[in-house]
């Protein structure tokens, strides 16, 4: 058992625990924090079903961003969709047996990796070139893009330039998952790739990457427009009828 094996296994365990624990903590906080006032951005749907459709448009099509900034939409949409494909393709390294659908999308996943690199370059270019965007960018915003870019590039290189011992690596991963360590094959590319992925997992619950669960809890998007009792007694009754509060009450006491 090499030192690298132990270090990498440890890193992956820690990253996994931090990612899952951190996200559960954050999401719980979001869910438990009260939202006493209705603030949907109108026109908003009047039913739960309508809200489901609105959220789907936001999450699957980035509808608001599309209205707001076409170039940002293009880069960001390409980035998220190719990332999704690449992640799905990666299932083949952690599942035995590899499900048929993962085999089928696998070649697309490899192509998507190129798109991923291009999209990340586009996002980075925007950030550097547009003065308005540069103004609002902190070092961590650049760093996150660079991190993703290096992950994507090392991944692509492994597949197309310097093929690594993926079978040996899968054995290591399966071992980690089964809590039985197998030796990590020595291959610098894959080691960089995995270490940076672990870093990304560690950053996730402490950074703007929280936008992923955040959007689900965004009151301007997920609230139903039902704050008024409807005429003729039709329509939904109010959900909240908060007590008529004494003047000095703050929302958190409700």
């Amino acid at each position: 058992m090499t030192v690298e094996t132990v270090i990498y296994a440890g890193l992956l365990y820690v990253a996994f625990v931090v990612l899952v624990g951190g996200l559960v903590y954050r999401v719980t906080l979001y869910a438990l924090t009260p939202a006493p006032l209705r603030i949907p951005t109108m026109p908003a749907p009047r039913t739960r079903r309508g809200i489901a459709a609105r959220m789907a448009r936001e999450i699957m099509l980035f509808a608001s961003l599309f209205r707001g900034d076409k170039w940002a939409w293009i880069w960001s949409y390409l980035f998220h969709m190719s990332l999704l494909l690449v992640l799905l393709q990666h299932l083949r390294y952690v599942l035995v047996p590899v499900p048929a659908w993962v085999r089928i999308i696998s070649p697309w996943g490899s192509d998507a990796a190129f798109v991923l690199v291009v999209a990340l370059a586009g996002l980075l270019g925007r950030r550097l070139l547009i003065a308005r965007v540069r103004f609002i960018t902190a070092p961590s915003d650049y760093l996150m893009l660079v991190l993703l870019l290096v992950i994507a590039v090392t991944g692509t290189l492994m597949r197309f330039v310097d093929r690594v011992n993926i079978v040996g690596f899968k054995a290591f991963i399966l071992g980690v998952m089964a809590l039985k360590l197998h030796a990590l094959p020595f291959a610098p590319l894959i080691m960089v790739h995995v270490a940076l992925v672990a870093a990304l997992m560690l950053i996730f619950p402490f950074s703007k990457l929280l936008h992923a669960p955040g959007i689900l809890f965004s009151p301007t998007r997920n609230q139903v427009d039902n704050s008024r009792l409807e005429a003729q007694g039709v329509g939904e009754p109010r959900e909240v009828a908060a007590p008529v509060a004494a003047p000095q009450v703050s929302p958190r006491q409700l």
Binding site: L65, D69, I130, K208, H211, G214, I215
Partner: peptide
Amino acid sequence: DSCVKCGA
């Protein structure tokens, strides 16, 4: 928490 600094 959530702003991604997209600039839109």
